Simulated assay, not measured.
Amino acid sequence: LYLEDLYVSPEHRGKGAGMALLRQLARIAVDHDCGRFEWSVLDWNTPSIALYDSLGARPQSEWIRYRLTGDELHALAAQARPLDPQPCTPAP
């Protein structure tokens, strides 16, 4: 299970909302036989990192996140050939 972003409004922080959400997501992962539950956190977010560490979650060092935006995104997109508008055929 991959969690893109967990955001708790400032007025609800420190009251268990984030923990409750993580528990429910862990339950979903287990119920659906997911082999893991992963998410990202910004390196400056020390309160969240401390919470995740306390759960037994461990940071992953094998992956490096990349982002392409702005002019570079448009330049790469401009290099793509137009797609042929062929209808999708269902698998047999």
Rank of each mutant, 00 (worst) to 15 (best):
A57F: 06
G56S: 01
L73T: 14
G70V: 09
K15E: 15
R58H: 08
A26M: 00
G70E: 09
S61I: 07
G35A: 07
R65E: 12
V41P: 03
L21I: 14
A26H: 00
G14V: 08
L51I: 09
G70A: 07
G18D: 02
R13I: 05
I64P: 02
Q79Y: 02
T46S: 15
H12P: 05
P90K: 00
L83C: 09
S48Y: 04
F37Q: 13
L25D: 00
F37W: 14
R65P: 05
I28T: 09
R81V: 13
L6H: 01
R23S: 08
A26D: 01
I49Q: 09
Q86R: 14
A20R: 14
A26S: 01
P10R: 06
F37A: 10
P47V: 04
N45G: 12
P47G: 09
D43A: 11
T69I: 08
I49P: 05
K15H: 13
D5G: 03
R67E: 15
L6P: 07
S61P: 06
Y52L: 10
A17I: 06
A17V: 15
L68C: 15
L55F: 04
D84M: 11
L68F: 09
G16Q: 06
L55A: 00
I28G: 02
P59C: 05
L25Q: 07
A50L: 14
Y52K: 11
R23Y: 06
E38W: 03
D43F: 03
Y7D: 04
R23L: 10
Y52D: 10
A17Y: 11
V41S: 04
L73D: 13
V30Y: 06
